[in-house]
Amino acid sequence: MSKTVLTVDDSRTMRDMLRLALIDAGFDVVQAEDGVQGLEVLQDVRPDVIITDINMPRMDGYGFMQGVRADVQNRAIPILVLTTESSPEKKVRARDAGATGWIVKPFDPQKLVDAINRVAA
């Protein structure tokens, strides 16, 4: 059975690139364009892995991850941050908000698939 990945990114182009890469690798993909929509999606879908950007309008990646972890049913879902940012301070903040791992853009499709399989195992 295919694993389901929720991608949260405000860039339509980036969402489409992620969707194509993940579908090619055999994943089911659900998408959200910011943290607010991401939390709404989680009311209906229980993904195996979440990939989220940090810089987003309405609710950024930190707020989204805190919202995910606030629901006890979602505490075990691995969350990978996929972002252009790479500062240690932001990584610490993401870890404290509930992130499992951090990937700096631009993403390499195969490395991303490997990362998903690693945290979803």
Partner: peptide, 11 residues
């Protein structure tokens, strides 16, 4: 240039 682009860093 982006340092360690694409690599996974686990927390």
């Amino acid at each position: 240039k982006t340092e360690d682009a694409g690599a996974l860093e686990l927390f």
